[in-house]
């Protein structure tokens, strides 16, 4: 009896769930594997996922899978079947930066792109009422005169803001100590409390408390980024050549699927995500958080991500330089 029932159940389940892989994709919930802990960026991905789900006719929950600078989420998603039911929330850190640093063995070419999602520019900010300097040049002069004395935070160690800030500091010959924090908010809190000298400040954080920060340098050459910080000086104003352009100095994510995902399945997802990203309500909700909705589709993936990978690869020595210099001072 028991056996019969089991077999019957199994058969029922098979016919329900395992009909030929992509007859009417998607038949069920599609999951987005998100590489960070819960926070603002998760909410942004949820906005896109919700809209995309509406376009697909199924739910798209976003699953937070933090660990090892985002690579845990990537490995987790890679171990899932290539059936289109798993989307990689392809943040630049696990997608490009960690491979560049030698911490992951894939490249951006190992994935099938769906559509670009969002970017998030950042800046170097100090606190209001700082007496030791008035602008970025002043900060650099102070740093040069006091090697190893400045404390800053890029959030985590060896993340994209760290790399870009280290590159800027390297170009000025300034050695400063990065202090890693669990969440960016804690770092900004300590900046305001006078424990840190400067910190990376993204647009969202700036919008929340414009009076609390003195934005010293916007780390992007894009005019839009400068405008988000109410016209604070950017790397173009300072004539700093970081060798970084476009998306390279900022955070962004490009949603992807497993490389072996069938094309027709990927196309369904691409079309849905494109429609979602073109919706005004989605764009508006993303912009409110201080993120920038992106509208490159999958055909532009190589053209946009390729140069980022090249540029980040070329400046990966900035982190090593900072470590070396800090060791010398000890």
């Amino acid at each position: 009896m028991l056996k019969k029932l089991l077999v019957a159940g199994a058969l029922a389940a098979m016919t329900l769930g395992a009909s030929p892989v992509h007859a009417e994709f998607p038949e069920r919930t599609v999951e987005n594997i998100f590489p960070w802990s819960a926070g603002t960026a998760l909410s942004v991905s949820q906005v896109i996922a919700k809209a995309m789900g509406e376009e697909l006719g199924v739910s798209v929950p976003v699953i937070s899978t933090p660990g090892a600078a985002g690579t845990k989420a990537f490995i987790t998603a890679m171990n899932r079947p290539a059936d289109g039911y798993t989307i990689f929330d392809g943040y630049v850190a696990p997608l490009v930066l960690q491979p560049v640093l030698g911490n992951a063995d894939w490249t951006y070419k190992d994935f099938k792109p769906l559509h670009s999602a969002v970017s998030n520019a950042f800046s170097i900010g100090g606190r209001k009422g700082e007496t030791r300097w008035t602008d970025f040049e002043g900060l650099m002069a102070y740093g040069k005169a006091n090697p190893g004395k400045l404390r800053y935070s890029s959030g985590s160690r060896n993340n994209l803001p760290h790399m870009v800030i280290a590159k800027v500091l390297q170009s000025y010959g300034v050695v400063a100590q990065n202090i890693p924090y669990k969440t960016d908010g804690d770092a900004r809190k300590d900046l305001k409390a006078g424990v840190l000298d400067f910190s990376f400040v993204n647009v969202g954080a700036y919008l929340q408390d414009k009076e609390g920060f003195e934005i010293l340098l916007v780390l992007s050459e894009l005019p839009g980024a400068k405008a988000s910080y109410d016209g604070a000086p950017s790397i173009t104003d300072m004539n700093i050549d970081l060798g970084l352009s476009g998306l390279a100095p900022m955070g962004w994510t490009w949603w992807l699927v497993h490389k072996d995902t069938p094309d027709d399945v990927a196309d369904v997802l691409r079309a849905a995500m494109k429609r979602a990203m073109n919706r005004d309500d989605v764009k508006e909700q993303i912009s409110r958080v201080g993120f920038v909705p992106l509208d490159w589709d999958h055909t532009q993936y190589d053209e946009i991500v390729g140069p980022v990978a090249g540029q980040l690869g070329a400046m990966s020595n900035a982190l090593a330089w900072e470590e070396e210099e800090l060791k010398k001072l000890r």
């Binding site: 802990s37 819960a38 926070g39 603002t40 960026a41 998760l42 909410s43 942004v44 906005v47 969440t183 908010g185 969202g204 919008l207 929340q208 408390d209 414009k210 009076e211 609390g212 909700q285 409110r288 958080v289 201080g290």
Partner: peptide
Amino acid sequence: ASSAVLIGALLILGYFPGPT
């Protein structure tokens, strides 16, 4: 972590938590 998500929701709704 829970209030981090609440902040995210508030931002998406168009409000910036903070002194302002």
